[in-house]
């Protein structure tokens, strides 16, 4: 395969990892915990997209044969699926995170409760639409060609889209975090929730905002991956979720550009694994992660860890 193709493959997969890690990092920065239901929200985003473009449910679930009365173009379906995923993420926050916060319980417990929420979501999907895989037809893109030439190589449109949308979302998120009142509020809560509260910032609202945003990013990423490689069943978010976790630490917990940089590095590294060694591809990100943790525990772009005395 030639270099351009490998680069585009790697960058587009890396963009998905980056979007995933961004969702983790938003929640981590305000709560200091990992949301293990994130992979399930990503999966839901993919199914929402499939339904919104008018796809029909297969024969194996309770919803067998169900089809929405609308068939939106992909451009309309994707943001709506993102909104749907955001609502689910808010629900996850409500049932799995807020009760623990109110009781000031050990944050470690959120790993378990959020995983519980993830298990419920994944199995609910299986119950409703079955375990079969669904493909989002590339025809959903309207008149766009399936691939286009770039510097002498052919590039799949879907992959270019993945990369473009990820970069766009990152830019919007950075602008919003730095330039808007709510964005600054979110950063203040990430810095110190109690001080932020004293300054009149509603931390609970900021936590909800972080979950909503992270759900939206996951939902959009899910829809894009569904379009690019098909929805492989209710569990397909888990593998991405674990990679996202590796990317998150690689880039530095709580760092927005770090998440994206980490994603692109891992995506590229995986793309350069030779075909004979493809079985080991999944170990690349974790190997990287291991090295980075040992050499630079705060991640590539993370801030130094404060030492508590």
């Amino acid at each position: 395969m030639d270099l351009i193709q490998i680069l585009v493959n790697g960058l587009s997969v890396g963009a998905v990892y980056g979007l995933f890690a961004l969702g983790y990092t938003l929640v981590f920065s305000v709560l200091g915990v990992i949301n293990f239901a994130h992979g399930a929200v990503f999966t839901l985003g993919a199914y929402f997209t499939y339904l919104l473009i008018g796809g029909a449910v297969g024969a194996n679930g309770l919803l067998a044969g169900f089809q929405l009365p609308v068939a939106l173009p992909f451009w309309g379906a994707l943001p709506l699926a993102g909104l749907g995923a955001a609502l689910v993420a808010l629900l996850v926050e409500r049932v799995a995170f807020r009760p623990l916060r109110r009781r000031r319980a050990d944050p470690l417990l959120a790993l378990i409760t959020s995983l519980g929420a993830g298990v419920i979501l994944v199995n609910l999907i299986q119950l409703l639409v079955g375990a079969e895989s669904y493909a989002i037809p590339t025809g959903a893109l309207g008149g766009l060609p399936a691939s286009f030439p770039l510097l002498g190589a052919r590039v799949r449109t879907v992959q270019a889209l993945l990369l473009g949308i990820a970069v766009l979302l990152l830019a919007l998120l950075t602008l919003w975090l730095e330039g808007s009142r709510n964005g600054k509020g979110l950063q203040a809560v990430a810095e110190d929730p109690e001080t932020a509260q004293l300054l009149g910032i509603d931390s609970t609202a900021m936590v909800r905002l972080a979950f909503g945003l992270s759900g939206f990013l996951a939902g959009v990423a899910g829809g894009l991956v569904g379009l690019s490689v098909s929805i492989a069943g209710p569990y397909f978010g888990i593998g991405y979720g674990l990679k996202g976790l590796a990317v998150l630490v690689l880039g530095g917990l709580g760092s927005v550009p770090g998440a994206v940089l980490g994603g692109l590095i891992v995506g590229l590294a995986e793309a350069f694994v030779p075909a004979d060694w493809s079985g080991y591809k999944d170990a690349v990100s974790y190997g990287f992660l291991f090295l980075v943790l040992l050499l630079r525990p705060r991640g590539l772009l993370g801030r130094p860890l404060p030492t508590k005395v």
């Binding site: 976790l245 917990l253 080991y280 992660l289 291991f290 943790l293």
Partner: peptide, 26 residues
């Protein structure tokens, strides 16, 4: 690995489990 704390240690050990899984598979 044990120099890492809290969630970093947890994620590093998840990575270890995944590396061992990929090795066992291949």
């Amino acid at each position: 690995v044990l120099r890492l704390r809290g969630i970093y240690l947890a994620i590093a050990t998840i990575a270890l489990v995944e590396i061992l899984r990929v090795l066992n598979l291949n």
